[in-house]
Amino acid sequence: MVISVKKAFFVMSGLALVLMVSVLLITMISSPVFVATSSPENVVANIIVPGVCEISLSSNRLSFGSILPNSNYSANVLVSDTNGGNTGAYINIYGSNWIDVSNSLIHFSVTNTIWNAIAQTSYTGTALTAVVANTQILVPGGSSANIYFGAAVPAGQAAGTYNQTITLLNSC
């Protein structure tokens, strides 16, 4: 069997053409085939319980009775701070000046009130200020902490009935 060079070239060219067309067709039809991931038939329930803190006081009043000018009351007037939450909270505190209820122009300084984490038999503690301060007294979640107050009246203070507002804040 004698195959001419021309015929062999023609056959080889034809085969090459077939191969190229095949590759082209394969490329065209081989578009990506994707299958969506099927999720399992489970429902996951999720609850997030946040940390919370609360504040409740044993009393909404502090009474020091009568204090003579240039005298004081020991830091032993108890206020109990209860935190009904599940996270510990620090007691923050500040107050206003002592003001005569019948004449607001008569007053004396907020710093004449002191607080202490421990009951005292004397006028000992940290002076209250008008700026909020962290007492560093921790009230654990679901528990209580005590804070004790004392007061002093400056020398020469006019007779009268004086009032002060003390703000206690639990912070968590």
Binding site: C53, E54, I55, S56, L57, S59, N60, R61, L62, S63, F64, V79, A89, N92, G95, V101, T113, V132, F149, A151, T161, Y162, N163, Q164, T165, I166, T167, L168, L169, N170, S171, C172
Partner: peptide, 26 residues
């Protein structure tokens, strides 16, 4: 800073300290 959320209560004319409660957020 500190944000405080205070409970507003009626003030009293009685002598002594009036305690106000609240919560604070740093």
């Amino acid at each position: 800073g500190l944000i405080e959320i205070n409970e507003i209560s009626n003030t009293s004319s009685q002598s002594g300290g009036v305690l106000r409660v609240g919560v604070a957020k740093v």
